[in-house]
Design a protein around this nucleic acid. Structure first.
Length: 405
RNA sequence: GCGCUCAUCGUCUAGCCUGGCCUAGGACACCGGCCUUUCACGCCGGCGACAGGGGUUCGAAUCCCCUUGGGCGUACCA
């Protein structure tokens, strides 16, 4: 959440540190007769559940201990079950899905405290949410079914029942629950893959929510514009391409200074030391428009920092042929004489080479590119030369002359 | 099985509540063109959906019913 820029007002709280509270609440329910001890063994329970399922019955607890009259052995292990209402129905108005009604006959006497004395999820969330004064519970709609079990617990404990908003889930491309085989399921994995937090937030929020035709939202804008009213009901399929597009957008429009700082780590991850050589923000500017992720940008930026140019054989064979020697020599000369090492100054030097050789940039560019970068794709050649610097550029051109066939 | 729930382009969605403005809009992806020193960016254009069937109505993507399909739940998991 920190990485995503999502802050919180208090906490985190650890349930493991609140067991006393849960114990007291369980006791309260026991004392008031709204919960009871159940001595049924797990084996018994499983057998009953299976039998019920076989006979086409609901696999719910049969209430053996709820109706028990005889006292059990003093030290027999037990769980605590909540006495769910047997008849009638439980209704709540979901802020997203509207009214939802469950017949109480569907409800089970859920276990609220295990044999080892620890409380269970459905009980703990009720106590926590109520004790913390939550008035609106926003959660995934895989919890819709838990709601009618939790509401009676709120009531039994004398807590006000909060409002609920169940947001749709995110599905994989095959519409099944999102899992590892659909790609990364952890946001941190996306950071490692070179995604920006604002792209992640923007993508995720638009999955299940909309604001007219708008696609791009800053965090501030989201805070201002987000509303439960515009949350959709249907589950959304995670679409990596759109995430990638958003990421590319934020890279394109991002601050080079900040991106440079981030890029450092991605370069380090592929064994490139950026402490020496061109300034990172300048490097970033040459790659912003052509990188979809920071990983991609790091790969594209590596040539700026490596001492040795990693020549691509095919590219060398095609563009560093002997007949290009005079071009490179002319360029070395004009670049060496260049006094104004700006983009325009560099462009002027190229201009002189073009004039001298009578060739267009299209004829000399590829060879220069291979000489400086090693391959046939890179940022604009003027930018590369300018960012690489006078000394390095000329050195690389000289090196290229030595490997020419 | 039972319960809950959802259903517009391949995907995210607008429109649905308050029927006619919808020959259904936008975005991603894809295809084509333009731009161009490579790769990209950008710009222009194209392809492409109201799940099916019944109603209600002068008129339905919009309201009702059924069917089908998907998701979730059905734990001493959370």
């Amino acid at each position: 959440m920190e990485w995503l820029g999502l802050s919180y007002d208090e906490g985190p709280f650890y349930q493991s540190e609140r067991f006393e509270l849960y114990r007291a609440k369980v006791q309260q329910l026991l004392d008031s007769g709204q919960a009871y001890r159940c001595y049924c063994s797990q084996d018994e329970l499983n057998a009953k559940r299976e039998a019920a399922l076989q006979n086409g019955q609901k696999p719910k607890y049969d209430g053996t201990c709820r109706n028990r009259t005889a006292a059990p052995a003093v030290d027999a292990p037990y769980v605590v079950r909540f006495k769910s209402p047997l008849t009638g129905e439980t209704t709540f108005v979901d802020r997203i899905k509207g009214p939802i009604t469950f017949s109480n006959e569907e409800l089970d006497d859920i276990i609220i405290q295990r044999t080892d004395g620890t409380p269970t999820y459905n009980f703990v969330v009720v106590v926590d949410d109520a004790e913390m004064g939550l008035t609106l519970i926003v959660r995934g709609d895989d919890h819709v079914n838990n709601t009618p079990r939790q509401i009676p617990i709120y009531q039994a404990l004398g807590y006000p029942v909060p409002e609920f908003a169940h947001v749709p889930m995110i599905l994989g491309a095959d519409k099944s629950r999102l899992s590892k085989r659909h790609g990364a399921t952890s946001v941190m994995a996306y950071r490692d893959m070179g995604y920006l937090p604002e792209a992640m937030v923007n993508y995720l929020v638009r999955l299940g929510w909309s604001f007219g035709d708008q696609e791009i939202f800053s965090l501030d804008e989201l805070i201002e514009k987000f509303s439960l009213d515009n949350v959709g009901k249907a589950a959304g399929v995670f679409n990596p391409e759109k995430l990638l597009w958003l990421n590319a957008h934020y890279i394109k429009t991002g601050d080079p200074e900040r991106l440079g700082n981030l890029l450092k780590d991605y370069l380090a991850a592929i064994g490139v030391d950026s402490s020496q050589g061109p300034a990172l923000p300048a490097v970033v500017k040459t790659l912003q428009e052509r990188s979809q992720t920071l990983v991609e940008m790091a790969q594209g930026a590596a040539f700026y920092y490596r001492d040795e140019v990693a020549y691509d054989e095919e590219a060398v064979a095609k563009f560093l042929t002997a007949d290009k020697r005079s071009i490179l020599e002319a360029l070395i000369r004009h670049l060496g004489a260049c006094k104004d090492w700006s983009h325009d100054g560099v462009a002027a030097a190229f201009g002189q080479v073009m004039e001298e050789t009578g060739l267009k940039l299209g004829k000399i560019g590829p060879s220069v590119r291979v000489a400086l970068v090693g391959g046939t794709t890179s940022p604009s050649i003027y930018d590369v030369v300018q960012v690489l610097g006078q000394k390095t550029s000329i050195n690389r051109l000289l090196m290229a002359l030595t490997i020419m066939s």
